[in-house]
């Protein structure tokens, strides 16, 4: 009798992943998308992501997955439940990173080869605008109210603030060398831009467009040139900023008020992009050279485990169960 109930409970447990949160990882070299269960962290599926999948994001309702297939020169679109491929979006050449408007439409795409940001309507699949920016556009961020989209250009070393209604650049903010990623805090008062070669994170006042602070990094035993900030995420309460430090194999935990670095978490090799779980409890990191992702407990700053995914994982996004 007891055994029977236990078996039932087990069945219920194994069935539950279908309803659970999911983690999607783009594997740049493997040309695949790895799907993990957001509760058990087990790999539950792998599917073809097109040629050189890098940037990856999901619609606000978590139903649609968008992937920058860089060498296909388009954005591939997938159903997050069935993994079925939906009609692709035009992207302009060599899309690397993108960001969705908070409403879920349009999509703003950085085109590294053409010095433009392409704006695409995800419903009509039409290109709405092409905005000329600096050399090698890369990082894309959007203000929480949707009014400004930010692009960072890697060789021009600027954050370009683009008005989302006029598609005009309203400000250019000089940051340190090779800016990679741009992220606003939750109330949109500050913008954080990582500089991979410069080794810093610039904190930009979102109203005055002034750089008000620069976050720097220092790890004993790690050469300074290996401390290369790439991906960055901020907790919903703005209390912690997590910064992926690339070949330093560490994620820095930065105090959201003082901007002091409070901890360095050892993860996999060449840690690249970061994403929170939908409930904000976990942070996922893609570790490009060790072919795995690390799972970090946000409250305790503890690295819980690492899970093997595909070849050279690049980007990561987590979706809520639908």
């Amino acid at each position: 009798m007891t055994r029977f109930t236990a078996a039932l409970a087990c069945a219920a447990l194994t069935a539950s992943p279908a309803l659970a949160d999911k983690i999607f990882v783009s594997n740049e070299k493997g040309n695949t998308i790895t799907v993990l269960d957001g509760t058990s962290f087990e790999v539950i599926h792998t599917f073809n992501g097109g040629q050189r999948p890098r940037g990856i994001t999901a619609s606000p309702d978590g139903k649609i997955l968008y992937v920058c297939a860089s060498d296909d020169d388009l954005v591939r679109v997938f159903d997050t439940e069935t993994y079925e491929e939906l009609p692709s979006l035009p992207s302009g050449p060599d899309p690397e990173l993108f960001v969705l408007h908070p409403s879920g439409n349009p999509l703003y795409i950085a085109n590294e080869d053409d010095n433009i940001v392409t704006v695409v309507d995800v419903e009509t699949r039409q290109v709405l605008a092409e905005v000329p920016v600096g050399v090698e556009p890369e990082g894309m961020g959007v203000h929480p109210d949707g009014s400004i989209v930010v692009n960072t250009s890697e060789t021009t070393n600027m954050a370009h603030m683009i008005d989302t209604t006029t598609y005009e650049i309203v400000a250019n903010v000089l940051v340190d060398s090779r800016p990679r990623f741009a992220q606003y805090d939750s109330d949109g008062s500050h913008l954080f831009v990582t500089a991979e070669i410069g080794g810093t994170v610039s904190v930009i006042d979102a109203a005055s467009y002034e750089v008000t602070h620069k976050i720097t990094f220092e790890v004993p035993g790690v050469v300074p040139e290996a401390l290369q900030p790439v991906g960055l995420r901020i907790t919903a309460d703005d209390s912690k900023i997590f910064v992926a430090l690339g070949p330093a194999n560490r994620v820095a935990v930065v105090n959201g008020e003082t901007y002091e670095v409070e901890d360095y978490l050892l993860v996999g090799q060449r840690v690249w992009q970061l994403a929170f779980s939908p409930d904000g409890k976990y942070l996922y990191t893609t570790n490009g050279n060790s072919n795995d992702i690390s799972i970090i407990d946000v409250a305790s700053n503890e690295v819980l485990k690492s899970v093997q995914v595909g070849q050279q994982p690049w980007g990561v996004v987590a979706t809520k169960s639908n």
Binding site: N115, G134, V135, T155, T156, N157, H160, I169, N172
Partner: peptide
């Protein structure tokens, strides 16, 4: 050309 692109903002 790369300098000029940046220069257009400066």
């Amino acid at each position: 050309a790369d300098n000029a692109t940046t220069g257009s903002f400066m």
